[in-house]
Design a binder for these strands. Structure first.
Lengths: 205, 205
DNA sequence: CACCGACTGGACTTGACAGTCCACTCCGCG
DNA sequence: CGCGGAGTGGACTGTCAAGTCCAGTCGGTG
């Protein structure tokens, strides 16, 4: 996987390259992203790219990892609140608001990369799959906490509900991207919430 | 959009090109598909491609339309049964079985195309969005029929449930593709079914 | 059978991209 | 202060793709 930088200067250059690559990939797609453009945007020359990365695939792998961190990191605060019902609702509201902000453009960056590279590079697929795993684990942790606190009934299957909820989210994002309209995302997440609600102990909304 | 064939021979050539292009795109992705390879696989020369299509985008648009037909057409029989509970269950079972068959490889072709081209070509996005609309409409029709027959309560919102179900399906496919495992799809669809089940009038499973 | 337009073949041009190469600079260390 | 390795610059090459062009062939019609 290329040369690992040993100096501070090299570390920053490598980071600049990954950040620039992530931007270009988001704009032009993974295959449409040219190393020339990445280099230009990172103010790094061709040979620097090949100094830190073996080839384009290697760079894209780094982009995939960085995308995981960006997507999950942006939700960290919200994940922390998932252990309560209002926190769960807040999380979905934030996701819909984010999609509204973007005018429905662009779905989930992880899913986008998966669609473009998942069948072409198994390592990248594994990286992105791990991103989904962590996402699902955060949801599951919240649900498990709600079971422990008695907010959800003990027969609620957190594994199943977490997987199903993440699927609703991902599917909702796809439909929102297709229609350029956040409504399908809202509906999908309402479905997920409503399903979880069938396991609530308190009846009020 | 290129020249519309007037002779039978031309019609078959055009069709061969679209079919070949769909294959290549499925294998290599939309951007990775070269016209050379499409031509070779269709036993058509370069100029034939440009005779029937303005450019690559135009061809990809035709591929998108053909993909819609393929995906929706394959489910026609199952759509017909969606108006009853056992038919709904049968539909989900068939989708999971299909994903098992493929070893989790490749998600929904419509979603894949959307991820690759949706942000780059608005016309293609619209075509694929229309595919989802038709998909959703088929589900909605089934749910509406169940409401009419009294199998579902009258307060079941078919619009919402159809959108949410399609989202679960799409999200489940993404996760299944990422993990190379059909389980997430099964869980997602179980979630969708379970949600619809909360509106059933008869209580038995 | 000659004509005509639809259809076909494949060489050619142009440009872009991944990846290579080597000369150079920077900077810590003895 | 000069040595050496990490880091940098950018020209260069080979490959391959999109799109153009024009000389053909085919088959139905008068």
């Amino acid at each position: 996987m290329g040369v690992q930088p040993t100096t501070e200067r090299g570390r920053r250059t490598r980071e600049r390259i990954v950040a620039a690559a992530a931007e270009v990939v988001a704009q032009k797609g993974a295959l449409g992203a040219s190393l020339d453009e990445v280099g230009e945007r990172a103010a790094a020359s061709r040979s620097q790219l090949y100094h830190y990365f073996d080839d384009k695939s290697d760079l894209l792998r780094a982009v995939a990892e960085s995308t995981n961190e960006a997507v999950l990191g942006a939700q960290d605060d919200l994940f922390a609140g998932l252990g309560t019902w209002p926190g769960l609702v807040r999380w979905t509201d934030a996701l819909v608001a984010l999609q509204e902000e973007r005018g429905g453009v662009g779905g989930c960056p992880i899913a986008n990369l998966l669609g473009q590279l998942g069948e072409r590079d198994d390592e990248i697929r594994a990286v992105l799959s791990d991103g989904f795993d962590r996402w699902e684990a955060s949801i599951r942790a919240g649900l498990t906490a709600m079971v422990a606190s008695g907010e959800l009934r003990a027969d609620a299957d957190a594994d199943w509900l977490a997987a199903s909820t993440l699927a609703s989210l991902q599917g909702g994002l796809i439909l929102a991207q297709a229609r350029r309209d956040p409504l399908p995302l809202r509906r999908a997440l309402d479905g997920a919430i409503r399903l979880i609600a069938t396991y609530r102990t308190t009846t009020k909304a």
